[in-house]
């Protein structure tokens, strides 16, 4: 069988006495949407931070298309095709929506040690940026400063910025959190459209979305994967019901 896009083996992260990631193994295939669910504090965000190289794991291996990336810095991983969105939005508040995406396009184009030409009027950055904004449903809000966007729009912008990096593997940390019903549906359609083209690891609390979108689901509790499989298998799993879906006492 071909190498999976992402393969994680025996990943451990300790914060002092707390084991936030506990011998976690998981893979994401090319074009697959793999959902990672689990209660608050299960270690989902910590896991994403380790995949991106923002946190150093205590043990374990991370491979992207068979290449070990566990020792690389974030910039090198991004160059190899990793991208992420943040649970708590991380945008440039003084800039417009378009500026945020254009900067992501600029970074993908190579180093920015260019000191002379005006970058804010560079069509080779602005035009593709408009396309990503449109893709995320923000075409009409291009020139609005981030601070004036609604929470839902900021979440959409997070996605547009991440897409502008043209990742092969996109790590999504609760993209639906705080969205209204119609925004949520829009986001779900968008992710559905990306399936098959890029691999995605989707961390999400909204079960309806997860069951509708995911090819596979893994359940994380106390840093450990307690179950993994398709939607039907997860819904049927007694451990998951007890530990997570809160139906143990029924």
């Amino acid at each position: 069988m071909a190498e999976p896009l992402l393969a994680v083996e025996g990943l451990v992260k300790r914060f002092g006495g707390l084991v936030a990631t506990d011998h976690l193994s998981l893979d994401v295939r090319e074009g697959e949407l793999h959902a990672l669910i689990g209660p608050n504090g299960a270690g989902k965000t910590t896991f994403i931070a380790q995949l991106m190289g923002e946190l150093r794991p205590s043990e374990g291996a991370i491979r992207l298309s068979g290449v070990e990336i566990g020792r690389l810095g974030t910039a090198a991983r991004v160059r190899m095709g990793l991208g992420r969105t943040f649970q708590i939005v991380q945008l440039l508040p003084d800039e417009t929506a378009l500026d945020n995406v254009a900067l992501a396009v600029q970074v993908r184009h190579g180093h920015s040690f260019r000191f002379w030409r005006a970058a804010r009027r560079d069509a080779s950055l602005r035009d593709p940026a408009r396309d990503y904004l449109a893709m995320a449903g923000l075409a009409a809000r291009a020139d609005v400063p981030v601070s004036a966007l609604s929470h839902g729009e900021q979440k959409q912008l997070e996605l547009a910025v991440a897409l502008a990096g043209e990742p092969r593997l996109l790590l999504l940390d609760e993209p639906m959190a705080g969205l209204g019903p119609s925004e949520s549906r829009q986001m779900q359609d968008l992710l559905a459209g990306l399936k098959g083209r890029i691999g995605m690891l989707l961390v999400e609390h909204d079960m309806e979305t997860v069951f509708a979108l995911a090819d596979r689901i893994s359940v994380l509790v106390h840093g450990r994967v307690i179950a993994s499989g398709d939607a039907a298998a997860i819904q049927a799993s007694p451990e998951v019901r007890v530990a997570y879906l809160g139906e143990g006492d029924v």
Partner: peptide, 28 residues
């Protein structure tokens, strides 16, 4: 004034506003 409006300047301004965002974009 050229530097501030250049690609370098935009990255620098981005770093001021959110280091985490710029790092996640792949900026050293």
């Amino acid at each position: 004034s050229r530097i501030v409006g250049s690609r370098f300047g935009l990255v620098l301004g981005g770093i001021r506003q959110s280091e985490r965002r710029m790092a996640a974009l792949g900026v050293p």
